[in-house]
Design a protein around this nucleic acid. Structure first.
Length: 189
DNA sequence: CGCACGATGCGCT
DNA sequence: GCGCATCGTGCGA
């Protein structure tokens, strides 16, 4: 699912109807039995959305200041999610820039990295547990396509700790050399 | 460019 | 009380 989400369009509709949207260009998979996964030990109030039906948002707060956005992917009761790490901004760039709170951000960097993405789209814990598939949802994924030339690559996940398997598993997926992909330069090519 | 570090809240042990 | 699925800045090369 992490691979399949690449190229699709994540859309956030603001209260005033403004559409903020971008093409997903970088994801990571967090799997059952994966020691880097927030629900590795047990179900808690925070990680409960990862146990909910596929298409449920899981948003968590980290480092005292950042939010990260995931989509649950497995059947109800099975904890799993895809972290959305970067978008190629497509709609509402001026609004995204305002949300970021700085005017010196390049277009391609507006939604570069999981916390920047949440800030640009104004996503916070209020979205955790919401159903992206609900007909009236203000946050959802639209079908879209990658332009044919794009190459999808994998790497170990960024910024995690855990056992050897978690550290080595190639569960990060990204569009090679895309300007909106995050991480150290070597992990963008 | 690469690396070190501080900010800052809170979930979980 | 520890450590985090991060980011921006500041330093030296």
């Amino acid at each position: 699912m992490a691979r399949d989400l690449l190229g699709k369009r994540l859309v956030r509709v603001l209260a005033d109807g403004t559409r903020l949207a971008g093409r997903i260009v970088e994801t990571e998979a967090y799997c059952p039995g994966d020691s880097a996964m927030h629900a590795y030990r047990r179900k808690t109030a925070r990680n409960a959305p990862m146990f909910m039906q596929p298409g449920t948002a899981y948003v968590y707060f980290t480092y005292g200041m950042h939010f990260c956005f995931n989509i649950s992917t497995e059947a109800e009761g099975v904890p799993a999610a895809v972290l959305i790490r970067a978008l190629e901004p497509l709609e509402g760039l001026a609004c995204m820039r305002a949300h970021r709170g700085r005017n010196d951000v390049a277009d391609a960097a507006l939604c570069q990295g999981p916390a920047n993405l949440c800030k640009a789209l104004a996503l916070d814990r209020a979205f955790s547990g919401c159903d992206l598939l609900a007909p009236d949802s203000v946050l959802f994924v639209e079908d879209d396509t990658l332009a044919g030339e794009w190459v999808i690559k994998t790497s170990p996940r960024i910024g995690i700790s855990g056992d050897e398997v978690a550290l080595r598993a190639p569960w990060r997926f990204y569009v090679a050399a895309h300007p909106a992909v995050s991480g150290p330069p070597q992990l963008r090519r």
